[in-house]
């Protein structure tokens, strides 16, 4: 399946490149249509993919962060869009640098992005500008740091309750 995808870029990718040109690069991925998108254009491209007649990517299936630590740019935000009408998926990858990873929020396009963006902020410290309520979702407010970053030690605990001092 991956072979055919590489040889025949799908019509969606053709349309994307015709519309946005330099801002979009086709990436090689075994799962299907994947593009690397410029951070400043990401929200605009996603909005276009959602609203353009004939594409109708009306569902945000997933949104998550990735940390490729030694690499520069270090972070990535991956959007997986799905079109119910055409039964088609597309993956958008946005690369962000280590300092101030920030990207425009897509909550105004997809309501489901609200919690997903909060999770990406909580776990990776990626800021989504324009998000209505960007606070921690899985961890507690007292937690310091972003646990899914590669440089966060996997067993560094920050307990809220002090341990029991008096045992039986």
């Amino acid at each position: 399946m991956s072979e055919t995808k590489k040889n025949n870029p799908s019509p969606v990718l053709d349309q994307l490149i015709a519309r946005f040109g330099e801002a979009v690069q086709i990436a090689d991925a075994p799962h299907g249509d994947t593009v690397i998108v410029e951070p400043t254009k990401a929200a605009e491209i996603i909005g276009w993919l959602k609203n353009e007649p004939g594409l109708d990517f009306n569902m945000l299936m997933d949104l998550h962060g990735v940390d490729y630590l030694p690499r520069d740019p270090r972070f990535e935000v991956v959007y997986q869009l799905y079109s119910l009408k055409h039964n088609r998926r597309i993956w958008l990858r946005v690369q962000l640098g280590e300092l101030n990873p920030e990207i425009e929020s897509v909550v105004s396009l997809y309501l489901g992005a609200n919690w997903l963006e909060r999770e990406a902020w909580d776990m990776f410290g990626i800021v989504f500008s324009g998000h209505p309520d960007l606070r921690r979702i899985l961890m507690y407010e007292e937690f310091e740091g972003h646990p899914l970053r590669r440089d966060y030690p996997f067993n560094k605990r920050q307990p809220i309750c002090p341990p029991l001092t008096k045992h039986l």
Binding site: P153, F154, N155, L164, H167, L168
Partner: peptide
């Protein structure tokens, strides 16, 4: 679950 999120045995917080 030897990780940042999990309590390592509840006997550390209740008897």
């Amino acid at each position: 679950y030897n990780n940042y999120a999990t309590v390592q045995g509840i006997d550390t917080i209740v008897p």
